[in-house]
Write a protein that binds this DNA or RNA. Structure first.
Lengths: 203, 203
DNA sequence: AGCCAATGTAGTCATTGACAACAAAGTAGA
DNA sequence: TCTACTTTGTTGTCAATGACTACATTGGCT
């Protein structure tokens, strides 16, 4: 048998990749540093040289997840249909990512929610909402959407799609297909923003 | 010192209550059966007599959480304003519960999402959406809302409010207040359902 | 060659969840 | 009352885990 080289060479990347796989297969609770070390044929103490502790590894996984997701959302936002079509596209991109990587999405947000998450993680995780706000502002200026605070409306769209994504990822849309719910959600939101909320109803 | 009685008497309830407290303070990952046993002054093996394993305890916590939440939603749905006001009320009740018990809400849904969750837990957890569907059907019959599959629309409302609740609970609404986001979300959804989605846009 | 930081190994510790054997307390029937 | 029987709790044990420490190997640098 050929002796393994003392140095792995790409241990950090190997750990990250394997950690993502494990998370997709067994969730975060199924992630063990020692098992991870075994999986990549390295001693149980080696991962500590690359990740201070287990949380640091999870943070890195979450960050990589957000970066990957942001790319998908950016692509959807720029693929040039009319405004409404692009809005629906963003929603689909977000939810599709969630359905493809359900456990990763959970990790991404629970990590971002963690009290001492890094600034980098939080800003990367907040990127998606900026795309939505820009689009809403643009649509308002074009007269397609009614007036209203773009900041709040963007947040409304984000939370709604976030809920859709989480439940779709978990397969908890009961009888409804993911496609139907995403379409219905984006359609309803867009129709609501187009109609606006009469002042009389705001009281 | 007065000797403790051999039998605790209400160990199950004490464990459940303390488990909820611990979860609110430290999340599920901060929950330990042994520490829990210490907290209620009982040996580390005692909890096993009431909960087969840790997951069984968490399941019980989640179920209690859903029952408590459903009561709040029911109350809001029945407090008799006009339809739109009741709709907003349901949303507020849901989100308020989430903000008051953020960690519990996470446990509730991650447990419900768990592959082998009990039928009881899943049906109890799905109760909220039935309330929403009934209200939408009623509003459609009254001509307040446009036509559309009530099942899908109820799901849209549920996922949107669910997202709002989760993010509000985690304090991730950025600059926006919980109150503002809930109101804006329910208003936008209601306006969207009232306007309906033109067939031309559905293509 | 010789130094040195980076990377990995090996050993240890407290904690945890789960399990098994045993003890104590309540219960029901003779 | 005596006696099984069940429920509830105790104690001891096991393997696995995350974190830490001391040490070994490697390759780059002067």
């Amino acid at each position: 048998m050929t002796a393994q080289p003392y140095h792995h060479g790409k241990l950090r990347e190997a750990l990250l990749e394997r950690a993502m796989e494990t998370i997709e297969e067994a969730g975060v609770e199924g992630l063990s540093l020692r098992q991870l070390a075994r999986d990549v044929n390295v001693s149980h103490g080696a991962p500590a040289k690359h990740f201070r502790d287990k949380q640091a590894l999870i943070d890195a996984v979450a960050l990589a997840g957000f970066e990957s997701m942001n790319r998908r959302i950016q692509d959807a936002a720029q693929s040039g249909h009319e405004l409404r079509g692009r809005f629906v596209g963003i929603g689909k991109a977000y939810v599709d990512f969630a359905v493809e990587h359900p456990a990763l999405l959970t990790v991404m947000y629970s990590t971002k929610h963690h009290p001492d998450s890094s600034d980098e993680l939080r800003s990367t995780g907040a990127q998606g909402i900026h795309v939505a706000r820009a689009m809403i502002t643009e649509a308002q200026e074009a007269g397609v959407l009614a007036a209203g605070d773009p900041e709040t409306l963007a947040m409304v769209c984000f939370v709604s799609l976030h809920g859709t994504a989480l439940l779709a990822a978990g397969g908890h849309l009961d009888g409804n297909s993911v496609e139907d719910v995403v379409t219905a959600t984006t359609d309803t939101l867009w129709a609501g923003m187009a109609a606006g909320v009469p002042a009389a109803q705001q009281s």
